[in-house]
């Protein structure tokens, strides 16, 4: 009769010690189109795949500038992502007003995580259905964080979220040791390659991806479509190499498959992006 008695509100534990509503929210992140981030010592690159909801509509933005030194890429419920971006913008601008200096990235991420955590402990709330990759630069260097609907946050060298992100993660796991000392251009190249992995053979075009960069001497900015296309063209080996990187990514993709299956089973509960 009941599919699951323990998933009707966020604050009810299952006997196995799980909070199903929180897990469903994390599922919403997996359903959203992919977003990736990677960083060197001096730069952070965020990238995402743009999916239009229908042939007739344009796609929704998934990368937002928070401040000159912080940007986010989101996967999951775009509306929730925009609310959290606005919160982050307001925190940054308040800090700038009081201290005339930039808010340290780590502190913003903690505040954001605390905000998400509250939603997992109040019966009248729901968790945010969005995962955020927060890239930023402060006095301790370049940072990349992943913020989860559960209120957890993690710092990464490189990370990917959203649908088929496992392929991008596999690609970056192979390369990440070179990221720390990579140049801005190399990072962008790796970002494009990682994005390409998530497309599963679909052609990489500037119309379906967005790239944003931030680093020492360069405030957060989203590359315009023409620049992205030129970059894609300049890495023409993307086309040649396409079969090669896809092979190793096939195995991890299978590993991710059961998770995707689980997601499908919860389709009624986990809200899709858009």
């Amino acid at each position: 009769m009941f599919r699951n008695q323990y998933d009707t509100d966020v604050t009810t534990w299952s006997p196995a010690g799980r909070l199903f509503q929180v897990e469903y929210a994390m599922e919403a992140v997996k359903q959203g189109s992919a977003a990736i981030g990677l960083r060197s010592k001096t730069h952070v690159v965020l990238a995402c795949v743009n999916k239009a909801q229908s042939e007739l509509s344009s796609h929704q933005r998934k990368i937002f500038k928070v401040d000159d030194h912080i940007g986010v890429a989101i996967a999951g419920l775009t509306a929730d992502g925009r609310v959290l971006s606005r919160y982050m913008r307001s925190e940054c601008i308040n800090h700038s007003f009081t201290y005339e200096s930039a808010l340290p990235v780590g502190r913003l991420v903690v505040q954001l995580a605390d905000k998400a955590q509250v939603c997992t402990q109040r019966s009248w709330k729901r968790p945010y259905g969005v995962g955020l990759l927060v890239g930023g630069l402060d006095e301790s260097g370049a940072h990349l964080y992943y913020n989860c609907p559960s209120g957890n946050y993690f710092e990464y060298q490189a990370f990917a979220i959203g649908s088929r992100s496992q392929a991008a993660k596999t690609y970056m796991e192979r390369k990440f040791e070179t990221f720390d000392n990579a140049s801005r251009e190399e990072l962008i190249k790796h970002a494009l390659f990682a994005i390409k992995e998530t497309l599963q053979g679909e052609k990489l075009k500037s119309s379906i991806c967005t790239i944003a960069v931030l680093g020492v001497g360069e405030s957060f900015n989203v590359l315009d479509q023409q620049t992205v296309q030129e970059l894609i063209n300049s890495f023409e080996m993307v086309e040649d190499e396409a079969p090669a990187p896809q092979e190793p990514s096939a195995a991890p993709e299978e590993a991710a498959a059961p998770a995707a299956g689980e997601g499908a089973a919860d389709e009624g509960a986990a809200p899709m992006e858009e």
């Binding site: 007003f97 009081t98 201290y99 005339e100 200096s101 780590g106 502190r107 903690v110 006095e139």
Partner: peptide, 19 residues
């Protein structure tokens, strides 16, 4: 209490005092 390696410098304190 953040204990994260960041700290307020004189510029920040001066700005805070001004506010």
């Amino acid at each position: 209490m953040w204990d994260d390696g960041n700290s307020l410098g004189p510029k920040e304190v001066h700005s805070y005092l001004t506010r």
